[in-house]
Simulated scan of single mutants.
Amino acid sequence: MTIETVVRVRTESTRDFAVPGSLDDLVGPSEGSLRLPDSVYWGPDPVVDLAHWDDIAKAYEATLREGTLADVQALVSPVVLRRWWSSLFLPVRIRRTWESRFPELVS
Protein backbone atom coordinates (compact mmCIF):
# COMPACT_ATOMS: atom_id res chain seq x y z
CA MET A 1 0.00 0.00 0.00
CA THR A 2 1.40 3.36 -1.03
CA ILE A 3 0.29 6.60 0.57
CA GLU A 4 0.86 9.76 -1.40
CA THR A 5 1.48 12.96 0.47
CA VAL A 6 0.91 16.32 -1.10
CA VAL A 7 3.05 19.14 0.20
CA ARG A 8 2.03 22.67 -0.66
CA VAL A 9 4.24 25.66 -0.24
CA ARG A 10 2.52 29.02 -0.19
CA THR A 11 4.47 31.60 -2.12
CA GLU A 12 3.72 34.23 0.52
CA SER A 13 5.89 32.29 2.95
CA THR A 14 8.91 32.29 0.64
CA ARG A 15 8.79 35.78 -0.89
CA ASP A 16 10.68 38.71 0.51
CA PHE A 17 8.96 41.97 1.30
CA ALA A 18 10.30 45.40 2.21
CA VAL A 19 10.01 47.09 5.60
CA PRO A 20 11.65 50.46 6.25
CA GLY A 21 13.82 51.11 9.27
CA SER A 22 11.47 53.86 10.47
CA LEU A 23 8.02 55.17 9.65
CA ASP A 24 9.78 58.52 9.18
CA ASP A 25 11.34 57.02 6.03
CA LEU A 26 7.89 56.92 4.39
CA VAL A 27 7.32 59.98 2.22
CA GLY A 28 4.30 58.99 0.11
CA PRO A 29 1.45 61.43 -0.44
CA SER A 30 -1.43 61.55 2.02
CA GLU A 31 -3.90 63.11 -0.40
CA GLY A 32 -4.49 63.49 -4.12
CA SER A 33 -3.76 60.78 -6.63
CA LEU A 34 -1.02 58.23 -6.80
CA ARG A 35 0.19 56.22 -9.79
CA LEU A 36 1.32 52.71 -8.91
CA PRO A 37 4.30 51.38 -10.86
CA ASP A 38 3.84 48.22 -12.93
CA SER A 39 6.21 46.37 -10.61
CA VAL A 40 3.77 46.91 -7.72
CA TYR A 41 0.37 46.75 -9.43
CA TRP A 42 -0.13 45.25 -12.87
CA GLY A 43 -3.93 45.38 -12.97
CA PRO A 44 -6.14 47.88 -14.72
CA ASP A 45 -6.19 51.52 -13.68
CA PRO A 46 -2.94 51.99 -11.72
CA VAL A 47 -3.95 55.51 -10.64
CA VAL A 48 -5.60 55.68 -7.23
CA ASP A 49 -7.40 58.50 -5.44
CA LEU A 50 -6.28 58.70 -1.82
CA ALA A 51 -9.66 60.17 -0.84
CA HIS A 52 -11.30 56.75 -1.38
CA TRP A 53 -10.83 53.76 0.92
CA ASP A 54 -10.98 51.21 -1.92
CA ASP A 55 -8.14 52.97 -3.72
CA ILE A 56 -6.07 53.24 -0.54
CA ALA A 57 -6.55 49.52 0.11
CA LYS A 58 -5.55 48.63 -3.46
CA ALA A 59 -2.44 50.82 -3.35
CA TYR A 60 -1.20 49.95 0.13
CA GLU A 61 -1.92 46.22 -0.01
CA ALA A 62 -0.15 45.92 -3.37
CA THR A 63 2.78 48.09 -2.30
CA LEU A 64 3.37 46.30 1.00
CA ARG A 65 3.18 42.90 -0.72
CA GLU A 66 5.07 43.62 -3.93
CA GLY A 67 7.07 46.82 -3.50
CA THR A 68 10.79 47.24 -3.10
CA LEU A 69 12.04 49.31 -0.21
CA ALA A 70 12.24 52.32 -2.55
CA ASP A 71 8.61 51.73 -3.64
CA VAL A 72 7.37 51.46 -0.06
CA GLN A 73 9.20 54.60 1.00
CA ALA A 74 7.99 56.62 -2.00
CA LEU A 75 4.37 55.44 -2.14
CA VAL A 76 3.31 54.96 1.49
CA SER A 77 2.39 57.85 3.76
CA PRO A 78 2.89 57.31 7.50
CA VAL A 79 -0.31 59.29 8.17
CA VAL A 80 -2.42 57.16 5.84
CA LEU A 81 -0.74 53.95 7.00
CA ARG A 82 -1.46 54.65 10.68
CA ARG A 83 -5.06 55.58 9.95
CA TRP A 84 -5.92 52.52 7.84
CA TRP A 85 -3.45 49.86 9.08
CA SER A 86 -6.01 47.71 10.90
CA SER A 87 -8.29 47.65 7.84
CA LEU A 88 -5.67 46.49 5.34
CA PHE A 89 -5.89 42.88 4.15
CA LEU A 90 -2.31 41.63 4.37
CA PRO A 91 -0.61 38.25 4.67
CA VAL A 92 -0.02 37.38 8.32
CA ARG A 93 3.75 37.34 7.85
CA ILE A 94 3.79 40.91 6.53
CA ARG A 95 1.40 42.19 9.22
CA ARG A 96 3.38 40.56 12.05
CA THR A 97 6.69 41.87 10.79
CA TRP A 98 5.43 45.45 10.41
CA GLU A 99 3.71 45.35 13.81
CA SER A 100 6.78 43.98 15.56
CA ARG A 101 8.92 46.73 14.06
CA PHE A 102 6.27 49.45 14.56
CA PRO A 103 4.12 48.63 17.62
CA GLU A 104 2.33 51.98 17.21
CA LEU A 105 0.44 50.47 14.25
CA VAL A 106 -1.39 48.05 16.55
CA SER A 107 -4.66 49.57 17.72
Rank of each mutant, 00 (worst) to 15 (best):
V6P: 00
E61C: 13
V40T: 04
L64Q: 01
L75C: 02
G32D: 06
I94E: 02
W98A: 05
T2A: 11
D25R: 05
R8N: 12
S39I: 04
E61D: 07
L88P: 00
E61S: 10
W84G: 02
P44R: 14
A70E: 15
R35D: 09
A70Q: 11
V40N: 01
R82P: 02
D25P: 03
W84V: 14
R96H: 12
P103G: 05
V72I: 10
S39N: 10
P20V: 01
R101M: 10
L75R: 02
L26G: 05
V40D: 04
V40H: 02
A70M: 03
P37I: 09
R96E: 15
L105E: 08
E4W: 09
A57L: 06
L81H: 09
L81R: 06
E4D: 11
A57W: 02
Y41W: 15
S77Y: 02
G28A: 00
V92G: 08
V47R: 13
E12P: 01
E66Y: 13
A74K: 05
M1L: 11
H52M: 08
R82E: 12
V19Y: 01
P37L: 03
A70V: 12
A62N: 15
V80T: 15
Y60C: 06
D49W: 02
L75H: 08
P29K: 14
R96D: 13
S39F: 03
D24Y: 05
S13N: 14
E99K: 09
V48Q: 06
G28S: 02
S107D: 15
V19Q: 01
P103A: 10
D25S: 09
